[in-house]
Design a protein around this nucleic acid. Structure first.
Lengths: 318, 318
DNA sequence: CTGAAAGCGCTTACAG
DNA sequence: CTGAAAGCGCTTACAG
C-alpha cells in the first residue's frame, strides 16, 4: 500500500489496481501523522500576517497559498493582529505541528520567535519589508526609500509645508521606516514636520477624515500644502473630509497614499500613490521556501520594487 | 515528559521542573505527528473559501481563525478561486493531513467533496449561504430573501423599470439565488427583467462601470430607473461611470449594492446596500465545529440576518 | 507519583 | 517485484 501511494516505485499493475480498489471501497486515505512520523516530512508550511482585513496581506497569502498548494504543501494561517505576543504564540503552535517553513510579515517580532525557528531549523522568510542590512532573509520593499520617493515627488512640485497622516507606529517598524524616509527626504531639503502636522491614528477612512480636519483647522497661511498618508485608506478618508469642507485637490492641497487600491484610481481626484505587487511577494516567498526545502539552498532575500502612480491628487504647490 | 507536557496529571513539582529545564536547554518541543498518531487527535481544522481577494471571505477567515486558535486549534487555509476541482483538491489535501473539522463557503461543490467528508467522519459547516432546506449545516444568510428585500425596497419607491448587474453565475449558487430573489419579487409585482437589462460579468469596479454604460445607452424612455448590483464593487464602478456620464443618483436613477464595504458609506452618493456580519459568520462557524468536536453535538445551522442600509443612492422613481 | 511497554500508521532498508 | 520487520515520537493503560 505504501509503495502504491507514495508514487513511482516498482509495483506491478495488478497489485496497484488491487490496492486502489481496496482503498476506494474502504474510503481509505493515507494518514498524514503516520507518514510524517516515519518520513519526518509534513508537507506543511505556515504564514503569519498581521490581519486579513487589509487586502495587501490577503493578496500575499493568496500568492503563497497558490504556489505551495501546487507543490503539495498545505498552508497554516495565523493572524497576529499586530500583537507580538500573538505572533509568538502562533509561531509556536505552527512549529509544534511541524511546519517545514514559515513566511512572516515584517521583522518586528519577539526575538524568541526567530530563536525558536532557528532552534527547530525551520527555514523562514520575512515578507513585505526589505532592508539591505536585515539579519533575516527579506522579500519585500524598502519602506523608507518608498516614502522618500513620494516625498521627493511632492518636493519637486514645489511644496514646502508638509503634513503626515500615518498608522500607529507601535510594534510596526514598517510605519517607523516610512516616517524615517519622509523625514530624511525633507531634511535634505532643509524642511521638517511640525508637531501638529504629524497625525498618528488607526488605519482607516475614519481617522483619515478626522486627521485631515485637524490639519486644515490651522490658518490658511500655515496650513500644509502637501499631505503624505501612510496608506490609501487614510488618504481616501482625508479626501472625503476635503469634499465636505469644500477643499479641492490639487488646487488647495496635494495628497498621496500608498497601496494603490482598486478604488483609488476610480474616485475623483485620482489618488497619487504607490503600488506594491503583494501577490508576487507571496509567490516569491513561497518559491524561496521551496528552494530551501527541496534544493537545500540557503534562503536569500529579494527586493520587490514598488511603482509610483502619479495621478491628479498631487499637483504644483499653490 | 508526556505527562508534564500534556497538562494536569500527577507529576511531582521536582520532576516537572527537571523536564521543563531539559526541554528548554535542548530546544525540545513535542512532535505533533507522534502525538496525533498516539492520540488520534490533530488539533487542526480547515477552511476553504473562494478567494482572499474579497474582504467578505477574508473577514470570515479572521473570525474562524481567532476562535479556533483560542481553543488550541490551528487552521489550514485553502482557496478554490471559484473552481470546484480546486475545492475538491484542497479538501482532499486537508483530509489527508487529518483536519478534524472543516468550514467551506457555499454548497456548490462536487458531491465527492461532501462524500469524502462523510466517509472520514469529519464534521463540517457550509458558510455564507443559508437555505432552510439545504442538506448541509449552514451558517449564513438566505441570498434569495436578501435580494428580494432589496428589490422590495426599490419597488416601494415606485420603480418599474429594473436592471441587474451581477457576478458570473457559473459554479456560484449564491449569485443564482440572488437573481432568483430579484425575479420572484419583481414577478410578484407583475414585472420582469428584459434581456438587455441583465448584465453578467466579472465582479469588480471595471465591469460595474462597463455594464452601467451599456444600460444607459438605451433611449431615456426605456432606460432602467432602478439598478440592482450583486455587490458594492459593481455598484461603485457603476457610480464612477455615472459621474462621467453626468448622471446623478437618485435623481436620474437609483442603485443598490451588497456587502456595505467601508468606502460605500463615504462616497457621494452614499450607497444603499446590505451588510452581512461576516466576522460573526466565521466565529459562529468555529463555535459550531468546536461544539461538535468537544461536546459531540450534531452540527446545526444558524441564520445570520443581513441588515439593509438605506442611503442616498436610492430614492423615489422619477 | 513513577517506570516500562504496547501500539498508533506509516516509511524504509533488507531479504528473497 | 513482493513480504516482513524495525522504528519514527508520542499516549495510555498497567504495575508498582
Amino acid at each position: 500500500v505504501s509503495r502504491v501511494f507514495s508514487g513511482a516505485s516498482k509495483v506491478s499493475d495488478a497489485v496497484k489496481q488491487r490496492v486502489h480498489d481496496a482503498a476506494l471501497s474502504l474510503d481509505w486515505i493515507p494518514n498524514a501523522a503516520g507518514r510524517a512520523l516515519a518520513s519526518s516530512r509534513t508537507y506543511i508550511a505556515g504564514a503569519i500576517i498581521p490581519t486579513l482585513d487589509n487586502e495587501i496581506f490577503a493578496r500575499q497569502v493568496s500568492g503563497l497559498q497558490g504556489v505551495l498548494s501546487r507543490h503539495g504543501i498545505t498552508l497554516f494561517l495565523g493572524c497576529s493582529n499586530y500583537d507580538p505576543d500573538q505572533s509568538l504564540l502562533q509561531a509556536r503552535a505552527m512549529l509544534a505541528r511541524g511546519v517545514e517553513a514559515l513566511a512572516i510579515v515584517g521583522e518586528d517580532h519577539p526575538p524568541e520567535l526567530f530563536a525558536a525557528l532557528r532552534a527547530q531549523r525551520v527555514p523562514y522568510v520575512v515578507t513585505y519589508s526589505f532592508r539591505q542590512d536585515s539579519s533575516h532573509p527579506c522579500i519585500g520593499f524598502d519602506n523608507s526609500a518608498a516614502f522618500a520617493a513620494i516625498t521627493g515627488h511632492l518636493l519637486s512640485l514645489g511644496h514646502r509645508r508638509f503634513a503626515v497622516i500615518v498608522q500607529p507606529t507601535h510594534h510596526n517598524r514598517r510605519v517607523t521606516d516610512r516616517l524615517a524616509g519622509i523625514h530624511a527626504a525633507l531634511a535634505a531639503a532643509g524642511l521638517t514636520i511640525g508637531d501638529n502636522a504629524l497625525q498618528i491614528g488607526p488605519s482607516g477612512l475614519e481617522f483619515g477624515a478626522l486627521a485631515f480636519e485637524r490639519l486644515m483647522q490651522a490658518d490658511k497661511a500655515c496650513r500644509p500644502t502637501a499631505i503624505i498618508c501612510g496608506n490609501d485608506m487614510l488618504a481616501l478618508g482625508a479626501l472625503g473630509s476635503a469634499a465636505r469642507l469644500g477643499l479641492v485637490a490639487p488646487r488647495d492641497f496635494s495628497i498621496t497614499g500608498f497601496d494603490d487600491l482598486a478604488i483609488s484610481s476610480r474616485i475623483e481626484p485620482h489618488l497619487t500613490t504607490m503600488w506594491v505587487d503583494n501577490f508576487k511577494i507571496g509567490e516569491v516567498a513561497a518559491q524561496h521556501l521551496l528552494d530551501v526545502l527541496v534544493e537545500q539552498k540557503t534562503p536569500a532575500g529579494q527586493e520587490i520594487t514598488p511603482v509610483i502612480r502619479l495621478r491628479s491628487s498631487s499637483g504644483l504647490a499653490p
